[in-house]
Every structure is written in structure tokens, then in C-alpha cells.
Amino acid sequence: MTDPYVRIRDLGVTFTGGAKPVRAVGGVSLDIREGEAVALIGESGSGKSVTMRAIMRLNPEKRSRIEGSIHVGGHDVMKLGARRLARFRGAEVAMIFQEPLLALDPVYTLGAQITESIRRHEPVSRAEARARALQLFERVRIPSPERRLDSYPHEMSGGMRQRAMIALALACRPKLLLADEPTTALDATVQIQVLLLLRELQRDLGLSIIFVTHDIGAAVEVADRIAVMYAGRIVEEASARDLMRAPRHPYTIGLLKSRAHGAMVKGARLDTIPGAPPDLANLPAGCAFAPRCFLAADSCRRDDPPPLVALDGGRTARCLRVEHTHPDAIGTPAH
């Protein structure tokens, strides 16, 4: 097997700006192959966005402490100098955000922003860059792209802005696209269009995608593999199919069960995970999920966090009692 395109080992991110240091990410290891789409899912404060930002070194360097290593396409991201880092961002890795209005510059037309971005990275003429911008707009399926290149971000609707931001991110032909909740703010009928667009780009351009979301449904539409995060750690990682069919970590099981879905009995109660996510500045000893876990035993509350257990089919779960969640042991949870 060849080396993975993205290789993250023991990534730790601690924010030191506040009164108490907050360990937002506590030892994340993740591999992503070329052309693979991986979703990081989790609730607010689970560390999914921080993990993704670390790949582009976007976390504030003065107020955070970062450990571990990140390699992307042969670059050692932690060791990149300022100039190499600027090249790396854009040409190797690009990012799209939840709110395009904050990521796009309001005083330039979209065409100007894209051509400027291309010309900053590559020695091409203005006309050439413009032609490429037009191609990109066609690529992301913006109707009447010629005219749209000359409009300003505020003149476009939410879905079109999101497409324009994706076009801008693709301007320098990156190989890895980081997507931070790109469809959360969109309406249902528009969300599905953008999700399908991402999938299409992955297939046609061979893009690797890391997709951060709290919405399992959106993750399933785009991702080949899903990593579930809880309190700064990946607690389960599996192919989308395996995860949805037979989740193995108690947190994933609870999360899938607690969703209101399909034709449920009226007035029925949802299975809930009791309690609330832990305070990252004050994590419990042992497994961070133990206080809310239906399977937790005394051993879960002791000592170190549970190790990552390798399971059949190349999947992993960070749980001491994972043998109790085997489909034969508890029956396949409904989905």
C-alpha cells in the first residue's frame, strides 16, 4: 500500500489564551488517501474544526500549543516556513467555510478575486486567468457564468455564493479540499445541490476532501469514510457503510439512535444520551464519554483514555468494552 496523501499523527492542540489551558484536540491520528473523502463529525467542542484547521496551520499560533505531526503530499506541514506555507495554502490545500460572505472580499467582484488568486500562485496573463475563472464557474455550475464573474458577493444568493467560494478555493488546483460545515447555513433544497457538487468534484478532479459537519446525513452523502469525534479525540472511524450499518462506539450508537428519523411512532420517546458534552478544560479521567455511556464499567473511569481498538474491516473504535457492541451482542441498531 502506498503512503496516504494526508498523514496526521498524535495531533494535539491546546489553547492557552484563556484563564485555563483548553485541550481542544487530544491525540488525533488520521490517514486520508488520494481522492478520498473523509467526514469528521461531532458536536460543538468535539475538536473537529480545530483538527481541520491544524492541517492548514490556521489556529492562532501565539495562543495555541500544537504537538504531533502532519504530512500532506510529502510536505511536513509543521515545518513549513512562511513563504512555503503561503504556497501550500491554496496550491496544495484549500478551504471552504460555512459562511461565504465572511470568506469572500465584499469590495471585489468574484472574477477579480479568482484571477488575483490564480496570478498570485502562477505566472499567467490576466486573460488566461480570467479564462480559467470562467471554466471554474462552469465547473461549479453557476448559471450564466460570464455575467456572474462580474458580480459582487452580496449580489448573489446563498447557494450561488457557496458555489463561488468553492470555485475560488479550486482556483489554484489544490489536491485537498477542507470543507468546514459548508452546507449548514443552506436551505434543504440548496444543501443537497452543494453536497452533490462536492461529490462530483471529488470524482472528476480526484480531489481529497475533509468534510467537517455535525450533520450525519450530509456526511453520508459525501464521505467514503467517517471519523466520529468526541471531546477532542476520534472515538470511531469506519467506512460510511459500516458506520451506519453497525456503529461500534457507544457514543456513535447513541448518536444514531437519538435522531428523529423516518416513520417513527407518534408520541414515542427518542433514545437519548444523558447529560451534556464535557468541559474541555476539565476532562474526566479515563474515557471522556464514560459519564454518559450506557456500557461504562469501572475500568472506563480509571487512568488513561482507552486505546484505539482495531476491528474487522479496517475500522477502529476507542473503547474498552467494544466487544459488547458487536452486532451479535446487542443486535443491529435501527437506522
Binding site: 437519548t272 444523558p274 447529560g275 451534556a276 458534552p277 464535557p278 468541559d279 459519564p291
Partner: peptide, 8 residues
């Protein structure tokens, strides 16, 4: 953080 449901 406090476990709200159990205090009920």
C-alpha cells in the same frame, strides 16, 4: 457541565 436530566 451538569447532567440535567438526572437532576430531574
Amino acid at each position: 457541565m451538569v447532567d440535567a436530566t438526572q437532576t430531574a
